[in-house]
């Protein structure tokens, strides 16, 4: 009924979040010790040249003025120039973001699908050996950092068995599909290039598994416990008591309320997934934004750092908006009840 009102309010909150994020990130980047102009020009540049660059980048102005310059150019689609690649940051992002998005989306799908699947199986067979096995793996999966999983997978499937490629997004002998979305799997499907599709998928698998494992088992645990909790609720018994078959009771009346908490957590797990991507992309030599992010950070490339973090922040915010919309769609209690009513 008030779904559109809920949406507008939700989007309004996100704008505040993004403004807050931009201020925070900008401040942190500018307060890092060291002089970016000096770093860019090297130790041998003359004081005058450094001074010139400083004034060109508005580095000699008060920090809030710098922020507004930056905000203004942000709205013009100008994120400044990377001192590391010597080209507009926006170009770098256009090049590297799709790779990270593809990886993160694929990992997110694995996380949601298998997380919920394992959770349902675990709940359905709770306290049997199946459940116990899943729970042991869940502890391992949650406790092991993504980069450790990545190294183990690389060693087993990349080095020892050599069944999966360990580097990059596509094998050298495969023709890359033309760039449409920048996501290789989707572009190759759109152009009907199945060889490229399967090759890209093979490249995706190991890094995506490494990234998704922690969140995946988190989802499984939450799904399991909410299913078990809801199975004791009267509404489960009542549908059963009115002759609705067991399979419908479980797959419909128990499943839907039980995955709502899982989906809410999914948004947060997606954030930690993006964070883990920094190391995992490095390990798999994945030409994505996170690997680019590490490079620019090590070089104190301020414009690029701010842009990378902003972009990741926007991605995270958008993912959480989507998650909130799905949750509100599934749960009328969120959508229909306004605060203070």
């Amino acid at each position: 009924m008030n779904f559109s009102r809920y949406l507008i309010r939700r989007l309004g909150y996100s704008i505040f979040v993004l403004i807050g994020l931009s201020i925070l990130v900008f401040m942190i980047a500018r307060l890092v010790p060291g002089d970016p102009a000096r770093a860019a020009l090297g130790p041998r540049a003359s004081e005058e040249a450094v001074e010139q660059l400083r004034s060109r980048l508005h580095l000699d102005q008060p920090i809030y003025v710098q922020y507004f310059y930056w905000l203004k150019s942000l709205f013009q689609g100008d994120l400044g120039e990377s001192l590391f690649t010597r080209r507009p940051v926006i170009e770098d992002i256009k090049e590297f973001l799709p790779a990270t998005l593809e990886l993160a989306i694929f990992a997110g799908i694995l996380m949601a699908f298998f997380g919920i699947l394992f959770g349902v199986i675990s709940a359905r067979y709770s306290n049997t050996w199946v459940d116990n096995l899943i729970r042991v793996f869940a502890y391992l999966g949650i406790a092991t950092p993504a980069f450790v999983v990545a190294i183990i997978l690389l060693l087993i499937f990349g080095m020892y068995f050599e069944v999966f490629p360990t580097i990059g997004r596509l094998s050298a002998w495969i023709d890359a599909p033309p760039k449409i979305t920048g996501l290789l799997t989707i572009d190759s499907l759109l152009t009907g290039n199945f060889a490229a599709f399967f090759d890209a998928l093979k490249h995706l698998l190991l890094p995506a598994i490494s990234l998704s494992l922690g969140g995946l088992f988190q989802e499984a645990r939450i799904t399991r416990s909410s299913m078990i909790e809801n199975s004791k609720k009267d509404y489960t018994y009542s549908m059963r008591a009115y002759g609705v078959p067991e399979r419908v009771v479980i797959s419909k009346y128990l499943f839907k309320p039980s995955i709502i908490p899982t989906i809410s957590i999914l948004g947060l797990d997606f954030a930690s997934l993006m964070g883990n991507a920094f190391l995992v992309e490095l390990l798999f030599n994945w030409p994505g934004l996170s690997r680019y992010g590490i490079n620019v950070m090590l070089r104190k490339d301020v414009e690029a750092i701010v842009a990378v973090i902003m972009v990741l922040g926007v991605v995270f915010t958008v993912v959480n908006i989507i998650v909130d919309i799905i949750v509100a769609y599934l749960d009328p209690r969120i959508r229909l009840v306004e605060k203070g009513e």
């Binding site: 018994y237 009542s238 009346y253 839907k256 209690r333």
Partner: peptide, 13 residues
Amino acid sequence: MIFQDPTAALNPV
């Protein structure tokens, strides 16, 4: 059977 608590007996979603 009619359950004790009508709120709990109806599926909220």
